[in-house]
Design a protein around this nucleic acid. Structure first.
Length: 460
RNA sequence: UCCCCGGUAGCUCAAUUGGCAGAGCGGGUGGCUGUUAACCACUAGGUUGGCGGUUCGAGUCCGUCCCGGGGAGCCA
């Protein structure tokens, strides 16, 4: 009977006649027998297999090299050696697929992240990237369970959008037109002849749709791919990423901040509980301070800091900054890092920003100067969450749309929400890859997503 | 997109002032009856990122392009 290696290693007792299938991580050969370490992806640890000369399949053992796939039958027995409780005493070994050692790129040694990125199709076979992807899977599951338990409805918002001005950055344009032949003819593009009869783009956020659903189902969330065509070349940006976007009816900015804090804490707690071995790898080999940092995040409330107070702190400190600190200007990375990593040394939620530096849909506060916006900043990663209470007053919203130079006609359905039974509501976007960076201590976003999409890179 | 740093064997890196291109790991071959980053011996492996220039001579200097890393902007 085939069992997963995780199950074999966690066994309470010897097992007769089991079968495992997986990939060879290392081979240590002696005369007359050899040791194999097999990994099937079910957990971080390998199963040590002892293969004696003479068993069926031993004649192929010279070809059973690092990277090869095998099926092995035998008995799970206590291991006399150090380093593992159980080992598999093989009675038969079947070579499924060879991996030529002269060309197989993964060696039984440590590789640099840069090199592994160039073989992204094989890197999940390493300890670190295997662990990372199991953590990613477990955290995705945790997102759904968290919101489900809170009574949120999981909704699916469109990926193709007709609105080219959602205000969250450059968008990828999508077309079914034959651009090559249009260019060859020197013709001007007529988007009325395109698939949708108008310009189409990939979504930069499900927020506007989610607001509509929240104002019917109460509490909703999306968790899906999001696209930004920004020419960003940084360790924190990719062109395609996954975003968690909750949206709550009858909720204000305070509720919003509370949800963001609770979500982040619960995700980290969940993964630490469910993936202890995988997390241990990151504590030991990726970031020695990770465990303490996660403790600190879980054990403390996030700082709630109005924008004006943030400015005041930054102006009073003796710290020199490259960029000016002044009311009305957006905070620079150096300012955010100072507040989060030095001054408070824990996550900081900055809220009530001047309305001039925030988008039209954020609710204008009573001072008529600021909007009910919030950003969650976390150590090492920076901005993890951006959100706001939404403007629910019809006239204020329309004024803001016009004021910021947008067309009210494009948003007629969004505006309608404020005409018919409008309610205070709030939500935010949380970058899933950035949450993974925070949780694992990995410092480059390209290493927490399987095949990262970045400017000039569309490999794999 | 801008600024800084880098690109040498499959991988990680050396190479003095411009003067014979090297090591460790990995690979191959042989040895070894309990290994676990296995061990011991031997061995192969190079268009020094591409193109052009300076020079008697370029891994090294100059120009340019490509790629990677770090920082900045934009943001999740």
């Amino acid at each position: 009977m085939r069992i997963r290696i995780k199950q074999a290693l966690n066994s309470d007792e010897p097992k007769k006649n089991i079968q495992v299938m997986g990939w060879v991580r290392t081979k240590r050969q002696s005369k007359g027998f050899c040791f194999l370490e097999i990994n099937d992806g079910s957990n971080l640890k390998n199963l040590q297999v002892i293969v004696d000369e003479g068993i069926p399949g031993y004649e192929n053992v010279d070809e059973v090299n690092t990277g090869a796939s095998v099926s092995i039958s035998g008995d799970l027995v206590p291991s006399p050696g150090k380093g593992q409780t159980w080992e598999l005493k093989a009675s038969e070994i079947l070579l499924i697929g060879v991996a030529d050692p002269e060309t197989y790129p993964l060696q039984k040694k440590r590789h640099s992240d840069e090199f592994l990125r160039s073989i992204a199709h094989l890197r999940p076979r390493t300890n670190k990237y295997g662990a990372l992807n199991r953590i990613r899977s477990e955290m995705s599951f945790a997102v759904h369970r968290y919101f489900h338990d809170l009574g949120f409805n999981y909704i699916h918002t469109p990926i193709l959008t007709g609105s080219d001005c959602e205000g969250a950055g450059e968008m990828f344009q999508v077309t079914a037109l034959d651009l090559d032949s249009l260019a060859a003819n020197g013709k001007k593009v007529n988007f009325e002849q395109d698939f949708f009869g108008k310009k189409a783009h990939l979504t930069v956020s499900g927020q506007l749709s989610a607001e509509n659903m929240a104002c019917a189902l109460g509490d909703v969330y999306t968790f899906g791919p999001t696209f930004r065509a920004e020419n960003s070349n940084t360790p924190k940006h990719v062109a395609e990423f996954w975003m968690i976007e909750p949206e709550m009816a009858f909720a204000d900015l305070t509720d919003n901040m509370a949800l963001a804090q609770d979500l982040i804490k619960k995700m980290i707690i969940h993964v630490r509980r469910e993936c202890p071995d995988d997390m241990d790898l990151f504590y030991r080999f990726v970031d020695k301070e990770l465990e303490a940092r996660l403790d600190n995040i879980i054990d403390n409330d996030f700082v709630r800091l109005p924008y004006t107070e943030a400015i005041s702190i930054l102006q009073k400190t003796g710290q020199k900054f490259e960029f000016p600190v002044e009311y009305g200007l957006d905070l620079q990375t150096e300012h955010e890092r100072f507040l989060c990593e030095k001054h408070f040394n824990r996550p900081v939620i900055i809220y009530n920003y001047p309305k001039g530096i925030k988008p039209f849909y954020m609710r204008v506060n009573d001072d008529n100067e600021t909007v009910a916006a919030m950003d969650v900043l976390v150590p090492g990663v920076g901005e993890l969450v951006g959100g706001s209470q939404r403007e629910e007053r019809l006239n204020v919203l329309v004024d803001r749309i016009v004021e910021t130079g947008l067309s009210r006609d494009d948003y007629w359905w969004y505006i309608d929400l404020r005409r018919f039974g409008t309610v205070p509501h709030s939500g935010f976007g949380l970058g899933f890859e950035r949450l993974l960076m925070l949780t694992t201590g990995v410092t480059n976003i390209r290493d927490v997503i399987m095949f990262p999409r970045t400017p000039k890179v569309l490999e794999f």
